[in-house]
Design a protein around this nucleic acid. Structure first.
Ligand SMILES: [Mg+2]
Length: 225
DNA sequence: GCGACAG
DNA sequence: ATCTTGTCGC
């Protein structure tokens, strides 16, 4: 699959934040009513000085395995809250380049627009690969919310300090911590939650993300630093 | 200055 | 994210 090279990656904190502010104008927070037949999940693992990126493509709505691609390279950026895409973006894009089955939607393990500058990992990658994307994070980075009831499918809106609704806090499994779901690119909060829940089976994480995480750990254990 | 802080 | 074994509870 292809992607756009809109900026450099070897940037300091100030420059990286500037890129986020400049690129966020390209965001389209509306889902184009397309026919969804495939959904991809993305995740990364780390070992020593290596970053391991995995992309898994599943059929939709059956969620059957279609393709798995990975890429291993040297870690080139530290983890800085708010700048996750500069650490995980480059390895992911190289794995993405190897994908052959076209994904209609891509799930990322992190935030979409629920971000200090409205441009989290899912939004950033969505703009570069020009695909509808959704941010499915396991914890909060930005925003205010009230805890959703302890029932499967319960959800409560996530708001930015200014009062704008930027996503939903979703309970995908009883007695499990909720997920922070926000639209990345070519997506809206309602559809982001819709597709996330349609991809959930008997686990907290939606299948595309869960599968990508499993493969990422499997590859990590078979990797010799 | 202090607390928050995706992975 | 990673370091790490068992243990508690649904
Ligand atoms: Mg991850």
């Amino acid at each position: 699959m292809r992607y756009r090279e809109l900026h450099r990656w070897d940037l300091n904190v100030e420059e990286a934040k500037k890129v986020q502010v400049e690129l966020r104008r390209k965001l389209i927070l509306q889902f184009p009513g397309i026919d969804v037949k495939t959904i991809a999940g993305v995740d990364l693992a780390f070992k020593g000085d290596k970053a391991i990126a995995v992309v898994v493509v599943l059929s939709y709505p059956d969620l059957e395995f279609l393709e798995y691609e990975s890429h291993v390279e040297k870690i080139n950026y530290p983890y800085i809250p708010g700048l996750l895409s500069f650490r995980e973006g480059p390895p992911f894009l190289k794995a993405w380049k190897k994908v052959k089955v076209e994904p209609d939607i891509v799930f990322f393990d992190g935030q979409g627009i629920a971000h200090p500058r409205g441009f989290g990992l899912a939004s950033h990658m969505g703009v570069l690969i020009e695909k509808p994307s959704i941010g499915v994070a396991k914890s909060k980075l930005f925003g205010n919310y009230s805890e959703p009831p302890n029932e499967p499918f319960a959800k409560s809106p996530l708001y930015s300090p200014g009062g704008k609704m930027i996503g939903y806090v979703v309970r995908t499994k009883r007695n499990s911590k909720p997920l922070f779901v926000s639209p990345g690119y070519l997506m809206d909060p309602e559809n982001a939650v819709h597709f996330t829940l349609k991809c959930v089976k008997n686990y907290r994480l939606p299948e595309p993300t869960r599968m990508a995480h499993i493969f990422t750990q499997r590859l990590r254990k078979s990797l010799i630093i």
